[in-house]
């Protein structure tokens, strides 16, 4: 539409001897209206879907977070949000969430990069890929059941340590904070590294070999080639891997819930678990809503800050 009505850019096109006759206004308006209608029709299902299943519940959750949890719920102002300053369990939950964010971003990315670089272009890279992707294909609940068998106090790991004479190293892996949170983050990394490896391998295979050859001819060593040639070209993949890990870390629930149910006490809860705990077990939907709102703001904020910075740097 615009191409037919926009004036030709002066200087790039020879001036036509006779100006093209413009369409009559009613016809233009009809076409424009039809296009707008078509665009609206295509967008409506998506807008409705997002509105009904995402935005409306979110708006309800924000609204509910300003009400107390008595039988006849009354307006409570910011009381539910003040719990983040006064409730020890929630403070611990925020600490754990921060640990999770750091751990679930750094570990899968670093391990994924290491494994991908070590196995790329080797004969057994396909086998290695298969090995690391299998945990990713398992559900979080299944992973938790298996690791509970390994990590419980009388579990496989401690029994192994005893068998090889390292009984002094055996400990209650899932009982003492912050060790239990760190151990669960490692379990999460075990599962999440697979997809990072696959994505980074795809990125590595997309790097033109000429760039590496040119760097070699210029006398660059392996580390310099990796640092100055490979790594910059993996940037788009890295953005995806880190972005996914960030979102997964913040919303992680199934693994934690099956492994420890946020316990012992509330020691390993993250905000996602606290939200469930407060809403459904402690039956405080107001407090649960406040946690949901804070978690959503953190996820959106972190994702926006990260992606904006990355895409800006790429010039996108």
């Amino acid at each position: 539409m615009r191409t037919t009505t926009a004036p030709p850019s002066a200087g790039h096109r020879p001036p036509s001897p006779e100006p093209r006759p413009l369409r009559p206004d009613p016809a233009r308006r009809r076409v424009a209206a039809r296009e707008r209608f078509a665009a609206g029709a295509f967008m409506t299902p998506a807008v409705l879907l997002v509105g009904v299943v995402l935005l409306a519940p979110f708006a309800t959750t924000v609204y509910r977070s300003f009400f107390d949890d008595h039988r006849h719920s009354g307006f409570a102002g910011l009381h539910n949000y003040q719990l983040f300053l006064t409730d020890d369990a929630l403070l611990r939950s925020v600490e754990n969430t921060l640990l999770w964010v750091v751990g679930t971003v750094a570990l899968p990315f670093a391990l994924g990069m290491l494994i991908a670089c070590l196995t790329d272009a080797t004969r057994w890279s396909r086998f290695a890929r298969l090995c690391v992707i299998i945990p990713y294909a398992l559900s979080g609940a299944a992973v938790a059941v298996v690791w509970n068998f390994v990590l419980s106090t009388d579990g496989a790991l401690n029994q192994l340590l005893s068998a090889v004479g390292l009984e002094s190293l055996s400990t209650s892996w899932l009982l003492d904070w912050p060790g239990n949170t760190l151990v669960i983050i490692c379990v999460n990394a075990w599962q999440a590294t697979g997809v990072a490896v696959i994505l980074i391998l795809v990125g590595l295979q997309g790097i033109p070999p000429e760039t590496l050859e040119a760097a070699s001819l210029d006398g660059a060593g392996p580390w310099q080639r990796f640092r100055h040639v490979v790594l910059p070209q993996l940037r788009p993949v890295s953005i995806i891997v880190i972005g996914m890990s960030l979102a997964n870390g913040l919303k992680s629930f199934d693994l934690l819930w099956v492994l420890t149910r946020g316990g012992p006490g509330r020691a390993t809860e993250t905000l996602a678990v606290s939200m469930y705990q407060e809403t459904f077990l402690l039956q405080r939907p107001g407090a649960g809503s406040a946690i949901a709102v804070v978690l959503t703001v953190i996820v959106l904020g972190a994702s926006w800050l990260y992606l904006r910075r990355q895409f800006d740097e790429k010039g996108a």
Partner: peptide, 8 residues
């Protein structure tokens, strides 16, 4: 006298 607290 008690099993570990994470006993299944």
């Amino acid at each position: 006298w008690m099993t570990p607290p994470d006993y299944d």
